[in-house]
Computed example of a mutant assay.
Amino acid sequence: MRLLVTRPEEDAAALASVLAARGHEVVMSPVMSIRFLDEAEFPQRVWQALLVTSANGARALARRREAAALKNLPVLAIGPATAQAMADAGFRRIEAAGGDVETLAALACLRLSPDGGPLLHAAGSVVAGDLKAALTAQGFEIERAVLYEAVASDALPGAAHRALAENRADGILLYSPRTARIFVSLARAAGLEAALAGITAYCLSPAVADALENTAFLTVKIAEQPEQAALLALLDG
């Protein structure tokens, strides 16, 4: 299949290789770019553990000189890809949740104690789900360090525009509700919404699929679990 990959370039290269190995043709179609906030304030406290909700959060944390003093702390990552990014950054005590905020909060409640000290959440300027509210309700103190922002594109990438305009796309991979909303908005602005009726949207979670409400995709398929392996399994169906 010819598949549109909407992830930022930082995340798309490895995915493109996996798709190519499965025999798919990849159309790189990022609708957001990552800007690291290297000068942002970094909270200084005695942390019980680190919570990381994206691979870009891991990369942003790794860029900070403050990270060197944190590498022996327990790390709870939202999923396997984020856990790998933390390992690549030199962190050692890492455990992955099931791919969403709910399973990350549950893992934190299982592994950590509200009395053990505050938690540091390395995150972007926009977050999916309310991790802080979920853990505060369980008695934890959690502080969010905004270390990067994902900036929406102002136009559909040229490769995606051509693929849709020429009816040469079979599907699109969507990893977040925000990505889904941005892509649909850009397709509409380009006058290409009708072209979506010919392709399948492969969604990482029900929340991503919900963001496609009132769009005319040929089919919307949802991964059984909010993780890349489950999303890729949809392509074999």
Rank of each mutant, 00 (worst) to 15 (best):
F183D: 01
F140T: 01
I94T: 02
A223W: 04
I172M: 14
G98F: 08
L37E: 05
R188D: 04
A67L: 01
L234C: 12
Q228D: 10
A13Y: 00
A134Q: 15
E9M: 02
L235A: 09
L196F: 10
R162M: 11
L135I: 11
A77M: 05
A233P: 07
L50A: 03
T136P: 00
A187T: 10
P206G: 02
P226D: 02
T6P: 07
R2E: 02
C203K: 10
L147V: 09
R64M: 09
G79P: 02
R168P: 03
A216T: 14
L4T: 07
Y148Q: 06
A60N: 03
R93L: 07
K71C: 02
P177G: 01
P118A: 15
A58Y: 05
A194F: 08
V127S: 12
D88L: 07
V52M: 04
L156C: 13
R188C: 08
R65E: 11
L192E: 06
A40Q: 05
A230C: 13
M28R: 02
E39L: 14
R144Q: 15
D38Q: 05
R22Q: 13
A152R: 09
A194E: 14
A77P: 06
A105D: 06
G237L: 10
L147S: 07
W47D: 02
Q44I: 12
H161L: 15
L112K: 06
V46S: 09
H161F: 15
L3C: 10
R2A: 06
A201K: 12
A105L: 12
I34Y: 00
A12N: 01
D210K: 09
Q84L: 10
A62T: 09
L73S: 01
A190C: 04
A163E: 11
S29D: 06
Q225P: 03
S153H: 14
L164V: 13
R168V: 03
W47L: 09
V5A: 03
A137Y: 01
L212Y: 08
L186D: 03
R63W: 06
G116T: 11
T219E: 14
H24A: 06
E224N: 10
L192N: 04
A189S: 15
A195C: 14
G139Q: 10
L232I: 15
R168M: 08
R162S: 15
A68Q: 08
P206D: 04
A152D: 08
I142Y: 00
V27I: 15
A87W: 00
T215Q: 09
M28G: 00
Y175R: 07
N72C: 03
A21R: 13
L112I: 09
L235C: 13
A209I: 11
N167K: 15
Y202Q: 07
F36H: 02
R168E: 13
A194M: 11
A145Q: 08
D154P: 01
E166K: 10
G57H: 05
A145L: 12
K221C: 13
Y202A: 10
V101H: 00
G198S: 15
T6G: 04
V5W: 03
L212W: 11
V26H: 00
A165R: 12
A96P: 02
L147Y: 11
R59M: 06
A62I: 09
R22H: 09
V18C: 07
E25H: 06
E213A: 14
F91I: 01
E102S: 04
A96V: 06
I182F: 05
R45L: 10
S205P: 13
A207I: 14
T103N: 02
V18R: 14
